[in-house]
């Protein structure tokens, strides 16, 4: 197996396993509690409205929005790591058909793996501090790296 294929296949399996482990941990220890929190915040918001207490209702909506912000990104990291892992494995198996020289193939493989790891990592880091610039920049850098490397792969298949 060429180095580029090894990077993609082993990296892809590791990423998929990481995504699954995260998903399992999340499903067992976090998800139900998060959904309960979201539901109770929204219920509280309406209860406060019924009690004619708009400021508390607004606070409850803010709490709901904050929990949902985290929930969306926590689910995203699970699906994106697994999805990107699968893309890497498929590309690894078919990489011989990508018409680039050995060194270029390795760089493309490294870019695909690095971007696939960093993009969801940036997304999950956004939950540590909402609106953090570094986390968003990491997610953008990761997704741009994957996209450019994938465009190179499509070009390589066509050549």
């Amino acid at each position: 197996m060429s180095p580029a294929r090894t990077i993609l296949i082993v990296g892809g399996i590791t990423l998929a396993a990481l995504g699954m482990l995260y998903g399992l941990h999340y499903a067992v220890f976090v998800e139900h509690q998060t959904l309960d929190r979201m539901g109770s915040s929204l219920t509280q918001a309406f209860v406060h409205a019924a009690e004619r207490n708009p400021p508390s209702a607004r606070d409850a909506v803010n709490a709901y929005a904050s929990t949902k912000y985290d929930y969306v990104r926590q689910v995203d990291i699970h699906s994106h790591w697994i999805g990107l892992g699968m893309v890497l494995i498929v590309l690894g198996v078919a990489f011989e058909q990508v018409r680039f020289r050995g060194r270029s193939q390795i760089w493309i493989a490294v870019a695909l793996l690095a971007g696939s790891f960093l993009f969801p990592l940036g997304v999950i880091l956004q939950t540590v501090k909402h609106g953090a610039v570094f986390a968003s920049a990491l997610a953008i850098f990761g997704s741009a790296t994957v996209t450019i490397a994938l465009a190179a792969v499509v070009w390589g298949f066509w050549r």
Partner: peptide
């Protein structure tokens, strides 16, 4: 979308509370 969702919910609750 996230900002719009919060705003719609707040408008909804303000109208209901009033």
């Amino acid at each position: 979308h996230e900002a719009r969702e919060s705003q719609i919910l707040k408008n909804m609750l303000d109208a209901a509370a009033a």
